[in-house]
Structures are given as structure tokens and as C-alpha cells.
Design a protein around this nucleic acid. Structure first.
Lengths: 107, 107
DNA sequence: CCGTATCCCTACCGATACTG
DNA sequence: CAGTATCGGTAGGGATACGG
């Protein structure tokens, strides 16, 4: 006998793609990821690579990406302080997808 | 002699990925694309497939996607009016990328 | 050097009512 | 049926000043 239960529709709240794009699509986030793909960078380096970004926004993006497990934040106990950000494997995987979007968009 | 000209930095305004995600990342847009992947749908069908979306938002998303060349809008001269939306080849290509994001997000 | 704290503005999105 | 018009809330992001 067939079930009378219909599939519950996917909503923006339950869609994995919508959820992913909700933070990857934030302003500056793709560029942050691109700049980290070649290797770890310091906070100040990213600021110079991203002219126009505010310190608040850069910190927001880095913290969100860290919270999503896409990058790691490493504090080196130096004076003056030195903090490095590096993509995780998962972050690099997402970077590859962003590259495929770039290829699609520019073709 | 090496040029003294440095690369002008990429900004969110000139980044093709940021620009793409600025509309693909809009709420409901990925779901609209997913529902159109199997084939053309009418406006009312999409409304029922997307419970909770407002008519304004649905119209906004469809018009944006049409403007980006990702779908076509076809008016059939019937009574009552019948309008169908179908992905273009480019729209289906983007849909495939969204599927790869889903695979990444769910892995 | 690496951020946080505030304030503010605006663009996105939802609800609702209405029209060809 | 397939939208448009209008209004309003809210969250994202910028500018700026300051702190560990």
C-alpha cells in the first residue's frame, strides 16, 4: 500500500545550498577565500589585499569561515602579535567550487 | 625591464563570483532553479512548490534569472493566461554547479 | 598588530491588497 | 491565472573610534 505521506517541501531554511550561499555569498567572502588558496595569510596582509574592506567586516568574515570549519586561526606568541589564517581541506574544496563558478561566469 | 605597474586588486564589484552569488545567493533562488531542472513550470506551479514564497519575491527571482539569461519566459495565448518558465542551457549549467555545492555541503 | 564597539544607513524581503 | 503596487521590518555592511 502506498503511503499517504507526501514529501515535505524543501524550504530556504532546510536547503543546504541556500544555507551555504547565505554566508559564502556575503560580500568579500569569495575574495577572502581566493586570497587564502595559495597559502596562509595574516590579518594585516588580507587587509592590504582587500582594499576597502572594513576591519569589522574582515573580522566577521574570518570568524564565520572559522565557525564553518573552512579555515583555522593560529596565534603566534610573538611581539608584536602575529595571527595567521589558513584554509582547511574543506575550505580548499569550497574554493575549487568557487573557481568553477568563476569559469562558468567568465565563459 | 620589468613594469612598475602592479595588478589592480579585485574588488567585490569586479569579482565574477561575487557578482554571480549576489543573485544566486538570494533567498529562494537556488530552490527555483532546482524545481526548474526537471523541466518547464508555470508560475502557479512554482508557487505551490515553494510554500511560503510571496508573489512579489517569486516574480523578482524569475525576472532576475530571465535578465541574466538563465531562464526563458513563454506566454501561451490561452484563456486563462498560461506562462511557462524554463531554464536555458546556461541555467542548467549553473544548476549543475549548485548540485555540486549540495554534494559538498552534505558530505 | 589585531582586532572590538558603536552608530547608522539602505537594500532585501515579507505581507497584503489589488489589476489585466 | 499571473502578476504589480505599496508599505514596513530587519539584518548586512560601512565608517570611525578605541582597546589588549
Amino acid at each position: 500500500m502506498g503511503s499517504t505521506q507526501v514529501d515535505s517541501p524543501v524550504t530556504p531554511e532546510t536547503c543546504s545550498v541556500t544555507r551555504t550561499l547565505s554566508f559564502v555569498g556575503s560580500k568579500w567572502t569569495p575574495l577572502v577565500i581566493f586570497h587564502l588558496l595559495p597559502g596562509a595569510k595574516r590579518y594585516g596582509e588580507l587587509q592590504h589585499l582587500l582594499p576597502g574592506i572594513s576591519p569589522k567586516t574582515l573580522a566577521d568574515r574570518l570568524q564565520t569561515l572559522e565557525g564553518e570549519g573552512l579555515l583555522t586561526r593560529t596565534v603566534h606568541p610573538d611581539k608584536p602579535p602575529r595571527v595567521e589564517y589558513a584554509l582547511t581541506r574543506r575550505g580548499r574544496e569550497l574554493g575549487e567550487i568557487l573557481n568553477s563558478i568563476a569559469a562558468w561566469a567568465e565563459s
